[in-house]
């Protein structure tokens, strides 16, 4: 098992508010980790510290064993150039898709390879075609985001991140803004990605999905990892009272297995 990402004693504060209180985490190549926790527990902040959308207040991030930033006497100092390169290696998908509205689906997916990686036009086109095909939207290549459904927009956003050929993918509640009938197509796309061996960190409230794709589930509470383990360990047989309460809230009403054939 090769380690791809490690967080060591990661802290993040916004002014007086301490959101992450010393996170330690090692992620193996190809591992799928699902983060769950109440709203405001710091899940988004944790993801955003991993690709330096937010700069950690203290602690260290290691990629393939190499620390990001330079240790100085007054803490870790970061150079914007290095952070830009790190972000290019880590894909991120947002709750609200954030597709570029002035570009077609194809142009959205080509933008990273073109502007950031400076690929040749042929290479950009190739990558974009491949990724759009992978999310099943090559037939929408020339559509603008406003002409796509929410589920399709989110799949284009996934393709846009994948076109950078990232080493890790971060997903922050990517189905929360979708109509219920569009959630499935996005989850299936993510499941396929997981099956191909992509390393993924996923924040989601879709616990059934978490159960079936996660190698490991982390329960975050109050800026700490309160409990972690395999999906059955955390989702079926939680030990901590906070985890139990959280799960109670998420499973008050359940459908017996629908008979669909």
């Amino acid at each position: 098992m090769t380690e791809i990402l490690r967080l060591r004693n990661l802290h993040k504060s916004f002014g007086p508010l301490e959101v992450l209180k010393g996170i330690d985490l090692a992620v193996a190549q190809g591992e799928v980790i699902v983060l769950i926790g109440a709203s405001g527990s710091g899940k988004s902040t944790l993801l955003r510290c991993i690709n330096f959308m937010e700069i950690p207040t203290s602690g260290r991030v290691f990629l393939h064993g190499t620390p990001v930033g330079r240790q100085t006497s007054s803490g870790v100092s970061y150079v914007e150039r290095e952070l830009t390169q790190i972000r290019a290696r880590i894909g991120m998908v947002f709750q609200h898709f954030n597709l570029f509205p002035h570009m077609t689906a194809l142009q959205n997916v080509m933008e990273g390879p073109r502007t950031v990686l400076k690929c040749s036009p042929d290479e950009c086109r190739n990558r974009a075609d491949n990724q759009l095909r992978k999310v099943g939207l090559e037939w929408k290549a020339d559509a603008y985001p406003s002409q796509l459904s929410g589920g399709q927009q989110q799949r284009v956003a996934i393709a846009r991140a994948l076109a950078m050929e990232p080493e890790i993918m971060l997903f922050d509640e990517v189905t929360s803004a979708l109509d219920p009938e569009l959630v499935g197509e996005v989850l299936i796309t993510m499941k396929e990605l997981a099956d191909e061996g992509m390393t993924m960190l996923i924040v989601t409230h879709e616990l059934g999905f978490a159960y079936s794709v996660a190698d490991r589930v982390l329960f975050l509470a109050d800026g700490n990892v309160l409990e972690q383990g395999s999906p059955p360990e955390v989702l079926t047989y939680p030990k901590e009272e906070a985890t139990k309460n959280f799960l109670r809230g998420h499973s008050s009403f359940r459908l017996p297995e629908p008979q669909l054939d």
Binding site: M53, T84, Q85, A88, R89, F94, F100, G112, A161
Partner: peptide, 10 residues
């Protein structure tokens, strides 16, 4: 929009 650009390494 800024964030999406930043996240792909712009």
């Amino acid at each position: 929009q800024w964030e999406a650009g930043k996240a792909i390494g712009m």
